Amino acid sequence: MQSNTFFGPHLRLVGMAVLWGASWPAGRIIAQSMPPLAGACLRFALAALVLIPWMYWAGGFAQLRHWSPQRWLGMLAAGATGVFGYAAFFLSGLQHLPAGKAALVITLNPVMTLLIAAWLFKERLNPTIAIGMLLAVVGAVVVISHGQPLGILQGSIGLGELLILGCVVCWVLYTLIGRWMLTGVDALSTTAVTSTIGAAMLLAASLIVEGPSSLGLAWHSSGTAWGALLFLAFGATALAYAWYFDGVKALGAGAASGYITLVPLFGVLISALLLGETIDAPMLVGGAMAIAGTAVMTWGRR
């Protein structure tokens, strides 16, 4: 019994990393089959069908009427960046870029977040964190540039890489908005409300940019695409967040966040297994550096 109590949160956090890693090949399947904005809208609309009742059963609805206008503004901003912006760049980028490579580019998330947090919130950086940052950035550059870092200076970055870098920018903004405007709000309420707001924004954007027929095209997509979409909505969103919240509660935010460093590794491996994507030398070397860098950063923050 004690063994299960000890290993349970760790196993669920590994499961969370697997689900989030698998979201990249799932997103690639959807991006090849559905209009990206319509697909992203359906993903978060379906996720909200689980998250909102979950929030209600957890007693989260009682606090909504006490939220200040600033808090609602923060939710709106977080939904616009962390859901609408991130999801739009995510599926649009996966139209042009292999899922495994995209998963490695995302290792820039913690680097950019920590750098800006150090600037805005005066977070202290130590030599260990700095070494991890440098390693992660160099690794990501090797992946993005196909092993030719000087090519970046010559504008050789493709559209897919630029779109996935848009995911990085949106996630950093989402994280900083959360620290600035959403202090004191539990993670479940934040996820449920921002997912609902983001789904509404994605719906409006899809109707305007892709046209009214986009949802119909998404609706009539293949069974494989719908399977990937349902996995993203219920597996990589609702279930993965549930396991992550459980890990944070049992082990603390620092220990739980360390498992996120496994996400790009699982993303690459699952993409190769399910989609037959090749892992070339720049991905192997740069990915190892990027993943090691994020692990060193996590260790340094402790």
Rank of each mutant, 00 (worst) to 15 (best):
M1C: 14
M16N: 13
L19N: 10
W20E: 13
A31Y: 04
Q32A: 15
Q32R: 12
M34P: 06
G39W: 02
A45W: 09
A58G: 14
G59I: 06
G60R: 05
F61M: 13
W72A: 02
L73N: 03
G74W: 11
A80K: 07
A80C: 13
L94S: 01
P98F: 01
A102M: 03
N109A: 09
L114T: 15
I116L: 14
I116Y: 09
A118H: 11
A130S: 10
L135N: 05
A140F: 00
I144T: 08
H146M: 09
G147D: 00
I152A: 09
Q154S: 15
S156H: 10
I157P: 10
G166T: 15
I177S: 10
G178N: 02
G178M: 01
M181T: 06
G184V: 00
L188N: 10
A192L: 07
L202Q: 06
A205C: 04
A205Q: 04
A205I: 03
G211H: 10
P212S: 12
S214F: 06
L215W: 08
L215D: 03
G223V: 06
G227K: 04
A228D: 07
T237Y: 10
Y241D: 03
A242E: 04
F245A: 08
F245L: 09
K249W: 04
K249C: 07
A250Q: 10
A250R: 10
A250T: 03
L251D: 01
L251N: 00
S257M: 05
V263F: 03
L265K: 08
F266Y: 09
G276L: 03
L284K: 05
V285T: 03
V285Q: 02
A288D: 02
M289R: 08
A290K: 05
T294N: 02
A295L: 11
G300A: 01
R301T: 01
